[in-house]
Amino acid sequence: MPNEMLHLPKVDCLLKRYKGSPGALLPILHEIQETIGYIPDAVIPEIAHALNQSQAELRGIISFYHDFRTTPPARHILRLCRAESCKSRGAEQLAAQLRERLQLDDHGSSADGNISLRPVYCLGACACSPALELDGQVHARLNAERLDALLDACREDA
């Protein structure tokens, strides 16, 4: 039995709590992801049935929002800002450094499941560009050396 099946009773309780609430889908999806770490395929039919929506509609919504995951997350999630302010201060060079060092594309995860790389288009740290978010913590005024130190810390933590 897949590990996510252990969490389905929590999903049942969650669906009962939101039953009949307008606009319940996004809060349900967020809470499932916070609880399980991602939105497993096994819960899609249950959610669709509870909200009287098709599975295709749910999958479309999940794929539209870039923060939803349908697979278990990597141990470390690195989100590099690619907005104009960060680009003008060297984010593209940092992105190239990340791709080379991690051997990933901009939306990849390392083979060992340790680091996931995702671009974002504003972290709200424009005055301190370039910036990235690592496991929810923003690191600003980034340079190549500081980026290498962050990556080394992630690898040591593996």
Rank of each mutant, 00 (worst) to 15 (best):
40 P>W: 02
66 H>W: 04
146 R>F: 11
116 S>K: 11
154 C>I: 03
132 L>T: 11
12 D>H: 05
144 A>W: 08
64 F>R: 14
2 P>S: 13
107 H>K: 08
96 A>N: 13
96 A>H: 07
11 V>Q: 07
62 I>G: 11
41 D>F: 10
111 A>G: 10
70 T>H: 13
69 R>C: 03
141 R>P: 01
19 K>L: 10
57 E>C: 02
2 P>K: 13
131 A>F: 06
58 L>C: 13
108 G>T: 09
46 E>Y: 09
120 V>K: 06
26 L>G: 01
132 L>S: 14
85 S>Y: 07
36 I>P: 00
70 T>N: 08
39 I>C: 01
36 I>V: 11
37 G>I: 01
110 S>M: 05
67 D>P: 01
41 D>E: 14
100 E>H: 02
37 G>Y: 05
68 F>A: 03
36 I>D: 00
36 I>S: 00
154 C>A: 15
106 D>G: 11
64 F>E: 14
5 M>V: 02
131 A>N: 15
47 I>L: 05
144 A>I: 12
102 L>D: 10
157 D>I: 01
40 P>R: 01
83 A>Q: 11
154 C>V: 05
15 L>S: 02
83 A>R: 13
39 I>T: 00
40 P>A: 08
29 L>T: 06
72 P>N: 07
33 Q>M: 00
26 L>S: 08
53 Q>I: 02
101 R>A: 08
129 S>A: 14
48 A>N: 04
13 C>S: 07
134 L>Y: 09
28 I>F: 02
82 R>H: 07
102 L>H: 09
10 K>T: 00
134 L>A: 14
134 L>M: 14
106 D>V: 05
86 C>P: 08
83 A>G: 04
126 C>G: 07
74 A>C: 07
149 A>L: 13
45 P>V: 01
125 A>H: 10
85 S>R: 06
156 E>I: 06
101 R>P: 06
80 L>Y: 07
37 G>F: 02
113 G>W: 09
8 L>K: 09
91 A>L: 05
117 L>E: 07
157 D>S: 10
41 D>N: 15
77 I>S: 08
45 P>E: 05
18 Y>A: 03
2 P>D: 14
152 D>H: 09
6 L>F: 08
17 R>K: 07
95 A>P: 03
149 A>F: 06
3 N>F: 12
27 P>D: 05
114 N>I: 15
117 L>G: 01
134 L>W: 12
43 V>E: 04
53 Q>P: 03
136 G>H: 15
94 L>P: 13
79 R>H: 07
150 L>D: 13
146 R>Y: 11
83 A>T: 04
148 D>H: 13
27 P>L: 03
59 R>W: 08
113 G>T: 10
107 H>A: 12
19 K>H: 08
83 A>E: 15
155 R>T: 13
39 I>E: 00
30 H>F: 02
